[in-house]
C-alpha cells in the first residue's frame, strides 16, 4: 500500500500499489465474509448437497423420490395455497391502508404508524397464536360475544375453527398486513403530485389517470411486495406450530418433524424438502427482483 522501491519502475510500482490496496480492501471484508459463509452460505450448501445423498450414503435422487410422496406434495400444495391467499389479502388491504396513511390526515402520525408496523410485522409465533386462541378460540371472548349477541356459534354453526386452515389464514394476515403497509407506503408516496396535475391539464379524469399513470407506476412495486409477502408466509414456522400443533399439513412443519424427532429423524428427506422450499422461494424472489428493476425507473 505504501510506495514500492524506486528501482521497480513506475508501472510495476503502480501495479503493486493496486494489489496492495485490493488486499487491504479485502481484509476489511473478512469478518463479514466469514460470518456469512459460516452461518448462511455453508448451511445452505450443506442442505443442497445433503439432499442428493441417500440414506445408504450413496449419491442419487432417492431423497427427492421420497419427497414426492402424496403427504409431502400435499404439504406443498397447502403451504403454497396459504401463502398465496394471505399474500393477496395482505397486499390488497395493506395497499388501501398505506394509501390512507400517505394521503389521510394522519400524515403527522405517519412515523408512529410505520414504526408500529415495523414491529408488528415481526410479531408472530407463540404469543400471537395464544392471542388469537384467547380471542377467537372456542371460548375466546369474541366467539362468546357473538354467540350471546347474535346467537350464532362460530364453531358449531359456521364451521369456523382457529386451529383450522382459515384460522391460520386469519393469523398470518396479522403479520402480512403491516409488512405490506411498510412496503407500499414508499411506493404510494412516490406517486408525484405533478403527474396527476399533468394528467389533469391534459384532460384526464380520475379513472384515466389511474389507468394510464397511477397503476402502471404502482404495479411493479406492489407486485414485488406481494412476492415478498408470499415468501414470508411460506417460510413461517412458529405460528403454525403453536397454533395447530401440526394438524395442518405445511412444509415447514414437515421439515420440523423430520429434524426434531428421535424416531422420525431423517435429514436426507428434510434436505430434499428444504431444496423444494428454496425453489419455490427463489421463484418468488425472481418476481420481486424483476418488479424491482421495473419500478426503479420511476422511483427516484
Amino acid at each position: 500500500m505504501i510506495a514500492a522501491a524506486p528501482r521497480d519502475g513506475p508501472a510495476r510500482a503502480a501495479r503493486r500499489a493496486r494489489a496492495g490496496r485490493a488486499f487491504a480492501t479485502g481484509a476489511g471484508l473478512v469478518p463479514f465474509g466469514a460470518f456469512v459463509i459460516l452461518f448462511l452460505l455453508l448451511p445452505g450448501a450443506q442442505m443442497v448437497v445433503g439432499a442428493f445423498i441417500a440414506q445408504d450414503g450413496r449419491a442419487g435422487l432417492a431423497n427427492f423420490a421420497r419427497a414426492l410422496a402424496p403427504q409431502y406434495l400435499n404439504a406443498f400444495r397447502t403451504s403454497i395455497a396459504i401463502s398465496v391467499e394471505t399474500a393477496l389479502v395482505g397486499a390488497v388491504v395493506g395497499t388501501v391502508v398505506a394509501y390512507a396513511i400517505v394521503h389521510g390526515e394522519a400524515r403527522r402520525r405517519q412515523a408512529f404508524v410505520i414504526t408500529f408496523c415495523t414491529v408488528t410485522s415481526n410479531f408472530a409465533g407463540v404469543p400471537l397464536a395464544f392471542a388469537f386462541v384467547t380471542t377467537l378460540g372456542v371460548v375466546g371472548w369474541v366467539t362468546v360475544f357473538i354467540q350471546a349477541v347474535f346467537h350464532v356459534n362460530l364453531y358449531n354453526d359456521l364451521g369456523f375453527a382457529i386451529y383450522s386452515y382459515y384460522g391460520l389464514v386469519l393469523v398470518y394476515a396479522y403479520f402480512q398486513l403491516p409488512l405490506m403497509v411498510l412496503l407500499a407506503v414508499p411506493a404510494i408516496a412516490g406517486l408525484r403530485r405533478e403527474w396527476r396535475e399533468a394528467a389533469q391539464t391534459l384532460g384526464a379524469g380520475a379513472w384515466r389517470y389511474w389507468r394510464d399513470v397511477g397503476l402502471p407506476v404502482l404495479a411493479p412495486p406492489l407486485v414485488g411486495a406481494t412476492a415478498l409477502l408470499f415468501a414470508n408466509a411460506f417460510g413461517a414456522y412458529a405460528t403454525a406450530y403453536s397454533l395447530s400443533s401440526g394438524a395442518i399439513n405445511l412444509v415447514p412443519l414437515r421439515i420440523g418433524t423430520l429434524i426434531n424427532g428421535d424416531v422420525s429423524f431423517d435429514a436426507g428427506l428434510a434436505n430434499a424438502l428444504g431444496v423444494g422450499m428454496t425453489i419455490v422461494i427463489a421463484a418468488a424472489i425472481l418476481i420481486y427482483q424483476g418488479a424491482n428493476r421495473r419500478s426503479r425507473r420511476w422511483m427516484r
Binding site: 452461518f39 448462511l40 455453508l42 448451511p43 445452505g44 450448501a45 450443506q46 442442505m47 445433503g50 415478498l228 415468501a231 414470508n232 411460506f234 417460510g235 413461517a236 414456522y237 412458529a238 415447514p252 421439515i255 420440523g256 429434524i259 435429514a267 428434510a270 434436505n271 428444504g274 422450499m277 428454496t278 422461494i281 418468488a284 424472489i285
Partner: peptide, 18 residues
C-alpha cells in the same frame, strides 16, 4: 437480503447438520 427470505426452519436444518 437473503436471510429475510430464507425460512428459519431450513437455516436451522443446515446449521444442525454442519
Amino acid at each position: 437480503f437473503l436471510p429475510f427470505v430464507v425460512p428459519a426452519v431450513t437455516l436451522a436444518l443446515g446449521l444442525i447438520e454442519i
